[in-house]
Design a protein around this nucleic acid. Structure first.
Lengths: 215, 215
DNA sequence: AAAGATGGATAGCAGCACTTTCTACTATCG
DNA sequence: CGATAGTAGAAAGTGCTGCTATCCATCTTT
């Protein structure tokens, strides 16, 4: 198909597709002449993936490029690709650090029996969160971590099972991306639903019954 | 204290504090003369909260303003405030919609025994995620929802318990903010850790043992 | 042959989160 | 008392990001 059809089928403007081509988020089409190229269904699929990451995941163009790089690297293990993706999905910030927070994370990992170097991305991200919590006067926040871990374990099993349920390795890698990006968004929404349900119930215990109100 | 001290103690530049004052993220200081104002520890605390939302939560200035509005509204119930906060934290996008996705969410809610109008923010957010998943060819993604819910239930209990563990209502509302914003970031990090641990183990079963590598 | 699309390059634009600059003061130190 | 530094408030400017718009020399379709 030509670029106009790619645009029509994906709903992405031609100018934006050209931009993604320039930025390396989409591979160039197959040139049939100096100024004609053909695009395949793979392009359409990749384009949709890019849009999902940008719009739903809120990733920057640079982050998307990094994720796609991990996805396209045939050398990369699933394990490594997952790390790259996790790092790309989260804000690049980290900023805050703090002795106590560092120790809280160390102790948490020990309790969970998890092994992880303090230099890894996920470790630093967690230290950043706890340090920030302490800055705003919520050192108690660290108490929630074990609950998070209890919830995260089965989720990780599901994620990984989902990824491994795919056929080829390429599909598995893509499942990791989808599982991470969409998974984070879905988890946030489901958490909001659960909280809403629970606080609605608590509220109903005090006030006359009323179905879940809009917000 | 004066603005310079507020700046020094928070690490936020004076110009940025003035910007936040203009944008209504910080209440004005108490004017002691036409061009002198005094700021309190409350200002410092609020400023740190704002920074946490902006830097760690990645919220826009407008979203922060909305959250703070909910936080400062004495009329607002905990229940309503939580809704406002959930909506502000997530991307304002939603865009995608789709009959099938809508039905998937409805069925999911029924399985969970949760009641929620299709007009509420969380409902639409979830529809958006599933619609996007389908667009990229992952209709299987919806199968993960029940796992998410199983994880989200105890988390919601913990969140709410954390909020209710606070003394005053103001503190409880702030705990909701912290629990949501920091909670999302912490959950993402812990999920990454759990996945890493699990995929590391799976990988170790196939290749010689090796401690958790950096990413 | 005429009309329209395409690839490729360059330039432009809107929004956002600040930063800078300015003015007219006020506090304070020596 | 004067010099210096700090302050509120307003307005304009900055740097970055994610697109858009315009051009032009082809190519394709009719």
């Amino acid at each position: 198909m030509r670029i106009a059809e790619l645009s029509r089928r994906s709903g992405v403007p031609v100018a934006t597709i050209k931009y993604y081509l320039r930025e390396g988020l989409l591979p160039a089409g197959e040139l049939t002449s100096p100024n004609q190229a053909r695009y395949s269904d793979d392009h359409l699929h990749r384009l949709r993936l890019v849009r999902a990451m940008v719009e739903l995941g809120g990733l920057s163009i640079a982050a998307v490029r990094e994720v796609l790089g991990a996805l396209d690297d045939p050398e990369k293990s699933l394990h490594k690709a997952m790390g790259t993706i996790s790092a790309a999905v989260a804000p690049p910030d980290l900023g805050a650090d703090d002795e106590v927070a560092h120790e809280q994370v160390r102790a948490f990992l020990e309790r969970q029996g998890w092994v992880c170097r303090p230099t890894s991305y996920a470790f630093k991200a967690l230290v950043g969160v706890l340090a920030t919590a302490r800055e705003v006067g919520h050192e108690r926040f660290a108490d929630l971590l074990d609950g998070f871990a209890a919830a995260a374990r089965p989720l990780a099993e599901a994620d990984l099972g989902y990824a491994l349920g795919a056929g080829t390795k390429d599909e598995a890698l893509e499942s990791v991306v989808v599982g991470t990006v969409l998974g984070d968004a879905a988890m946030a929404a489901v958490r909001a639903l659960a909280r809403r349900e629970l606080s609605g119930v608590r509220q109903a215990e005090e006030t006359p019954a009323q179905p879940c109100s809009d917000t």
